[in-house]
Design a protein around this nucleic acid. Structure first.
Length: 1019
RNA sequence: GGGCGAUUAGCUCAGUUGGUUAGAGCGUCUGGUUUACACCCAGAAGGUCGAUGGUUCGAGCCCAUUAUCGCCCACCA
């Protein structure tokens, strides 16, 4: 090891060097790895696996920082700790990214490549992004247990997925139903909800007349339905009317009346017109509605025009008598609500669309046409039959595919579901009875509300990237053939599918051979499972379930899950229910939901908006320690973190605030140096050739400055450790400032430990920031300076200083791991043994014990006395600034105070000289007051700074008179309060006493100020 | 439409169970090359706590109403 010299330490903390050095050191020493230790309590955390769709942004940085803080603290507290890292295959999103690139760069769709080739391409993408993501985590300093790295498509996860599916199939909870998907007809793929955008396009509302078949006398001869998509009439299988329109309208009327009572002036007209409309319908339409309801119950039919198909009138509550014509056409295959009606009324479902968006053979003469074309033809044909009642213009909000920019067709697909009745209840119970605690507690409500609907979980996805559903279809075989084929196997189950007239065979195996059933061919389901199906298993699948491994037994249930609020339902709830189902125990005891990071406009960050910030950019500018400390400092409980974003010019370092306009440009010119730089949108070669401007936020400056402050405090400490020897420090050896800092240190230790236990990261960071800066640096270090000059005081001062820094470093380590390790290592070279009862420092701060509060050091009296000292110092500095006296001019002052205060303060002469450039001449009750003085008043003290030759008497007199006015005003207010009979008789005695004390104080001040006024007046 | 949250200094945010004169950082202004730190030091200015009403001796904090913004969920024949 080379000779260590303080001079090697630069004035500014070199974060990049420290990050590289110490991360490698920790990995080499295997400090992140948690070993199964029966003598230690386990503490385990699974990472919310980031999607391999792209690089991490600041939201991930926050999430992982908060986990790492906890994990590092627990390690120091002596737990056996593992933080299991990994990534998620993110089915839809990842396949979409790859397909998008394929389309943009090669003009191909997935069908051009085929399943195997596309999946291979996605694996390549995954490899690249996983590497990037893991690199980002490491740069942030995350102490993940890399030996346990997982990916949701790993064989071990795949096995857990198949086993879970198999067990659910066995339980009878897997079934096949219908679900509406957003179908992109151009790319011929299902599109996720968040890949849609909505646009309002001009459209029409068409009123179509369907003739009633054989109307009886007095009955209407037709019904009128309204639609924005007339072509779907080809798939109509019913017309619905409300079964009890009288009651329904009455109910609506009551609701409107209720709203009218509480309505604001502005809404009143609107609500009133709704009421008028309902009443009109009650008068004019009700008889017809009632008649239709009666006809529906009699099973009457109407004739679907063009197709000439009789379809039933059905009585269903989906038809609202207060809306439209009161009659609704039902197209079960192309609308989710109509689908529900179709299920209730047992209607046939006719799919009139092909996957390319053209009309299917079911559309008869219109087959093969586009929807637009068929719409025109159908409207024209209906009009020619005289069945078009009216056309209204009506702007319509249509969903579009973000990828192909074409309109989305709602498409009802066959889909696999999991029944949630039982599973949801178990997950609700786990939170209701406290086995899983969600904090902040308000989020338990969204969890419970969502689960209580017990909506079945659609688990199939029409994709190629993911866990293929372990179901095989077999047609034409008899049950005895199946029983024979799978005799003696408990890893295969089958069920008859009445609708498809086939067997469903479910197997835990990766592959069932196509001729597993002799004489019949079996084929595997094409679809893959929802991404959340595999992430739901994450806490136990990562530990080797279904094998009951030692790992699983030791680490499961995990200790805490830290995540963001938008996936409480999608992910957290499902982890709880699968954990209970598979392992019989909750997956974690605590869930902490942290805030979200927003940009300067209050919008969530996302890559597509261009306001996302790469943590690596922040680390480059400010350092990983500043990134982490800054995030923790901002992570308060309720408030989302608003973070104005700026570009940093790579040429001159200037900051260019990000606006909604400039954040989507491929390149920008720096307003300061006029040179151009590129952004994340750079695609053209000329843009890509420019240097890249990083995207950062100035909100990390506070943390960067703090890190540098701490760095310099450590430098100062080490500069003063020459001749340091480790020896126990006796209580009697301690100086006033030692007692004070040790008292504060113990309190701070307690506060930080408590705050972290409650996930109050911002509170912990704030306490540490204020202690380190305002107390340790601003006071303790300054006071120690004078003691370091004195050979008799120096040894104790060195020991307490080294001890305090040592403890502070350990408290800060979870927040700023690199910085604290860097200092720890340097400090170790000068003072390897530290503490009031010295012990040898550990080889890494990571393995140092978490500080314990020392209650014996906590001393309120010392803290009060110290506050007095700070008061005097403040008054002196104030006086200097007020009188505009240069700092090199030494001042003299006297303090009028009681004997005890005098005794306390008089030994501190040199401190006042050093810290305020002022020398006390006398302390006590009867001090001689300088004729011309700056006068300030503190509780129990009056400070007179001798101003001979410095000030303007008239100005000073005015100041004093103003001050007196102020004090007298407050005395009047205070007297009024105390003479208020209500206050005196009702407020607690302690409060009244406090108010009386305040009044006495004010009166004393008034006396002193009057005296000062008199003195000036006499001059 | 339902649920949740926010609104405090120019900006970004703290503010413990209601109790003296509501705090911090940045920014602004004044003054500083005090050998740890200009990513610093010493000071100053700046707020009727979104609005209205209520409870209370006392409200930034509790209750009701309301406005604005954000998020989640549902829905839009």
């Amino acid at each position: 090891m080379s000779e260590f010299s303080i001079d090697d330490l630069p004035k500014q903390y070199d974060h990049l060097a420290a990050q590289k050095r110490w991360y490698a050191f920790w990995e080499e020493k295997k400090l992140f790895h948690g070993t199964l230790d029966p003598h230690k309590k386990p503490f385990s955390v699974v990472i919310p696996p980031p999607n391999v769709t792209g690089a991490l942004h600041l939201g991930h940085a926050l999430n992982n920082t908060l986990q790492d803080i906890l994990v590092r603290q627990k390690r120091m507290q002596g737990y056996a700790v593992t933080w299991i890292p990994g990534t998620d295959h993110a089915g839809i999103a990842t396949q979409a990214m790859v397909e998008k690139r394929l389309f943009n760069e090669e003009g191909k769709t997935r069908h051009d490549l085929g399943r195997d080739v596309l999946v291979q391409r996605i694996w390549d993408w995954k490899a690249a992004y996983e590497k990037r993501i893991l690199g980002q985590l490491k740069e942030m300093g995350c102490s993940c247990d890399w030996d346990r790295l997982r990916f949701t498509l790993d064989p071990v996860c795949a096995k857990a997925v198949r086993q879970t599916f198999f067990r659910m199939f066995e339980a009878g909870w897997i079934y096949r139903g219908k679900r509406l998907v957003n179908w992109d007809t151009k790319l011929q793929t299902a599109v996720a909800d968040d890949e849609l955008f909505y646009d309002t396009v001009p459209g029409h509302f068409w009123y179509l007349k369907y003739p009633v078949i054989d109307p009886k006398l007095g009955e209407p001869d037709s019904v009128v339905v309204a639609t924005t998509r007339p072509e779907t009439m080809l798939g109509d299988t019913a017309v619905a009317v409300h079964p009890n329109p009288t009651a329904a309208l009455a109910k609506v009327e009551v609701e409107i009346l209720k709203r009218l009572e509480t309505a604001s002036e502005k809404d009143r007209d609107d609500i009133q017109s709704q009421l008028d409309e309902v009443r009109r319908r009650q008068r004019e339409e009700l008889p017809r509605y009632e008649q239709l309801a009666k006809m529906a119950k009699e099973g009457r039919q109407v004739m679907l025009p063009l197709v000439n198909r009789p379809i039933p009138l059905v009585a269903d509550i989906w038809a609202k008598p207060e809306l439209g014509t009161g009659c609704v056409k039902i197209t079960p295959a192309h609308d989710p609500n109509d689908y529900q009606v179709g299920m209730r009324q047992k209607l046939p479902m006719i799919n009139i669309l092909n996957k390319d968006g053209t009309l299917s053979p079911e559309a008869g003469p219109y087959a093969g046409m586009s929807t637009d074309e068929s719409r025109q033809k159908i409207v024209a044909a209906i009009e020619s039959l005289g069945l078009l009642v009216a056309v209204e213009d009506r702007p319509h909000e249509l969903p579009f595919s973000d990828r192909s920019k074409t309109p989305i067709e709602p498409f009802l697909n066959d889909q696999w579901f999991v029944k949630m009745e039982t599973l949801a209840q178990t997950a609700m119970d786990a939170v209701s009875d406290g086995r899983v605690r969600i904090s902040p507690s308000r989020y338990a409500k969204s969890y419970l509300d969502w689960l209580s609907e017990k909506r079945d979980w659609p688990i199939g996805r029409q994709l190629w990237w993911g866990h293929r559903i372990p179901i095989w279809y077999c047609q034409g075989a008899s049950e005895s053939e199946l029983a024979a084929a799978f005799a003696g196997r408990d890893d295969v189950k089958w069920r008859w599918d009445d609708e498809g007239q086939q067997w469903w065979i479910c197997s835990e195996q990766t592959q069932l051979v196509t001729d597993a059933v002799p004489g019949h061919t079996i084929t595997q389901e094409e679809d893959v499972l929802d991404t959340w199906f595999s992430s739901a298993l994450w806490p136990h699948s990562t530990l080797g379930w279904p094998e009951q491994t030692a790992e699983l037994k030791y680490w499961y249930p995990t200790s805490v899950l830290i995540t963001s609020r938008d996936i409480i339902t999608l992910w957290v709830a499902r982890m709880v229910l699968t954990g209970l189902f598979n392992q019989g125990d909750v997956p974690f005891h605590d869930v902490y939901i942290h805030s979200k990071i927003l940009d300067g406009f209050g919008e969530g960050m996302s890559k597509s908006k261009g306001n996302g910030v790469d943590p690596i950019d922040v680390i480059g500018s400010f350092g990983a320690d500043a990134l982490r400390f800054g995030l923790a400092y901002l992570a308060t409980e309720t408030q989302d973190i608003r973070m104005p974003v700026e570009f940093r010019c790579p040429h001159c370092g200037a900051s260019i605030p990000q606006t909604k306009e400039n954040r989507i440009l491929p390149s920008l010119a720096c307003p300061k140096c006029k040179q151009k730089f590129s952004t994340q949108w750079a695609e053209k070669p000329e843009d890509r050739a420019l240097p890249r401007g990083s995207v950062v936020s100035e909100r990390f400056e506070i943390a960067r400055n703090f890190c540098n402050k701490l760095w310099n405090a450590a430098r100062f400490t080490m500069m003063n450790l020459e001749g340091y020897t480790a020896q126990p420090v006796m209580d009697a050896d301690l100086a006033f400032d030692d007692r004070w800092i040790l008292s504060r240190l113990s309190t701070v230790t307690k506060q930080v430990t408590d705050a972290l236990a409650k996930f109050e990261y911002a509170e912990a960071a704030r306490v540490l920031y204020e202690f380190a800066w305002d107390e340790f640096c601003s006071f303790y270090l300054e006071m120690v300076k004078t003691r370091m000059q004195d050979a008799t005081q120096r040894p104790v001062a060195q020991r307490v200083l080294a001890h305090t820094l040592d403890t502070l470093l350990r408290l800060l380590h979870p927040f700023t791991p690199f910085l604290t390790e860097e200092i720890w290592q340097s400090l170790g070279k000068l003072a390897s043994s530290r503490g009031l009862e010295p012990v040898e420092a550990t080889e890494s701060i990571m393995t140092a014990p978490w500080p314990e509060a020392v209650t014996a050091h906590e001393n309120p009296t010392i803290e009060q006395q110290f506050a007095k000292f700070q008061g005097v110092l403040g008054a002196l500095r104030n006086a200097r600034a007020r009188q505009n006296i240069q700092s090199r001019e030494n001042l003299a002052f006297v303090v009028r105070c009681d004997a005890a205060t005098a005794e306390l303060m008089s030994p501190m002469t040199s401190v006042f000289t050093a810290m305020a450039g002022a020398t006390p001449l006398a302390w006590g009750e009867n001090v001689a007051v300088p004729a011309l003085a700056d006068h300030s008043i503190l509780p129990g003290m009056e400070i007179f700074v001798d101003l001979a030759g410095h000030i303007d008497i008239a100005a000073e007199l005015k100041k004093k008179r103003d001050e007196l006015d102020k004090i007298e005003g407050r005395i009047v207010a205070q007297q009024k309060k105390l003479s208020n009979e209500n206050f005196v008789s009702r407020a607690p005695v302690a409060v009244i006493e406090k108010e009386r004390g305040t009044l006495a104080d004010l009166e004393a001040q008034a006396v002193a100020v009057r005296e000062a006024v008199a003195r000036f007046e006499a001059m």
